Amino acid sequence: MRTAYGLCIEGLDEVTELDAGVRAPVGSRPVSVRQRHAVPPPPAPLDADRMVRVLTDGRTLELGRASGDATFYGPPLAADLLAHPYLAPVAVVVNRWAGRETFHAGAFVHTGRAWVVLGGRTAGKSTLLAALAAREVPVLADDVVVCAGGDVLAGPRCVDLREPIPGFGLRTRGVRGDTRLRVTLPAVAPRLPLGGWIFLHWGARPAMTPLGPAEVLARLAARRSLPELPSDPGALLALAARPGYDLTRPRDWAALDATHRLLDTALSAAGPLP
């Protein structure tokens, strides 16, 4: 059995980026993953007993809501691809069916709390997380963040980069057909309490700007995965009650040191959990 994203996963024993032989978080959802090079079934909606969705590369993913079966139809996927990005849509659908909120985001750990990093596709989420990992800051997740109650659940133990970060000495290996450089992450707790939210932006100099709860709520509501599935308004309100910040930093590798210092100072002042 392997674990990630609040899932207990069978069928991915060859995926080393997933935790093995550890106690799964309370409430973990069982999922059995398999691959079939066969004609896929026709599409089916998310609110049915099963979901069938065509992925961006033409493969089809079928998920059983009650059974927990996840089947990829198409050419076989290598283990590095199953770790990321193909496990992500499985995690998103299963956790949204379970009533959890998921976001296209990453998360790192500061003073025992998980801080979620959100931004667009070119906002530098993975670069920031890899730079923090190089400073021995624990990274909880990249690509998908799953919130279960007031906790954030750990993802696969890797961060994928489009290009190397100069001056950090990060050990990487080519994955996904050598289109990405993968940083392997050490083990981390399977779930940690949510500290708050960090929204990434590019700008002239590093700056952290606090956000009010109403603004955080509006942004989270707009960024949750699969908005066609219902969300619990009370759960979203509870998530938005945690501190939120806009983090602005320049597109300059040399600014990563200043960004890290700014994060450490601001998050240390955020205070204890309620």
Results as ranks from 00 to 15, higher is better:
Pro230Glu: 06
Ala189Trp: 01
Val145Leu: 01
Asp143Leu: 01
Arg180Lys: 13
Glu136Thr: 13
Glu62Phe: 13
Leu262Ser: 15
Ala154Thr: 07
Cys158Lys: 11
Leu55Phe: 15
Thr259Glu: 02
Val139Ala: 06
Ser268Cys: 03
Pro230Ala: 02
Glu136Gln: 13
Val159Gln: 07
Asp80Gln: 07
Met51Asn: 05
Leu12Met: 12
Ala269Ile: 00
Arg182Asn: 01
Arg2Asn: 07
Ala79Tyr: 09
Asp160Ile: 11
Val90Pro: 06
Pro250Glu: 02
Gly155His: 03
Asp142Met: 02
Tyr245Leu: 05
Met1Ile: 10
Val39Pro: 13
Val33Pro: 00
Gly196Gln: 03
Tyr86Gln: 03
Asp142Arg: 03
Leu118Arg: 05
Pro186Met: 15
Val90Thr: 04
Gly149Asp: 08
Pro45Met: 03
Gly58Ser: 04
Leu194Glu: 10
Gly149Val: 04
Ala221Gln: 08
Ala218Arg: 13
Gly74Tyr: 09
Pro193Cys: 15
Trp115Thr: 05
Asp57Thr: 09
Leu161Gly: 01
Phe108Met: 09
Asp232Tyr: 05
Gly58Lys: 07
Leu61His: 07
Glu17His: 06
Pro227Cys: 10
Leu229Trp: 06
Pro42Ala: 01
Ala123Lys: 02
Asp69Met: 11
Tyr86Val: 00
Arg224Thr: 06
Cys8Tyr: 03
Ala218Tyr: 15
Arg121Cys: 10
Leu263Glu: 02
His37Thr: 11
Ala148Met: 08
Leu18Gln: 04
Phe108Val: 09
Leu217Phe: 15
Gly195Asp: 09
Leu262Arg: 02
His260Ala: 03
Val159Thr: 10
Arg96Cys: 15
Gly174Lys: 14
Leu229Val: 10
Ser28Cys: 12
Ala241Asp: 08
Asp47Phe: 00
Pro45Gln: 03
Asp257Glu: 07
Ala254Val: 05
Val117Asn: 02
Gly74Val: 07
Leu229Gln: 06
Val90Tyr: 03
Gly6Val: 08
Arg173Glu: 13
Val188Arg: 15
Arg182Trp: 10
Ile198Gly: 02
Pro250Gln: 03
Gly119Trp: 09
His201Pro: 06
Asp57Met: 13
Leu247Phe: 04
Arg173Phe: 10
Pro75Ala: 12
Pro274Gln: 15
Pro166Cys: 03
Val145Lys: 00
Ala240Met: 14
Gly271Val: 05
Pro186Ser: 14
Phe199Asp: 00
Trp202Lys: 13
Arg65Trp: 10
Arg223Ala: 14
Leu161Thr: 02
Ala204Arg: 13
Gly149Trp: 12
Arg113His: 07
Arg224Tyr: 13
Gly212Pro: 00
Leu87Ile: 11
Leu185Tyr: 12
Glu17Leu: 11
Asp232Glu: 10
Gly244Pro: 02
Ala254Pro: 00
Phe199Tyr: 05
Cys8Val: 15
Thr179Ala: 14
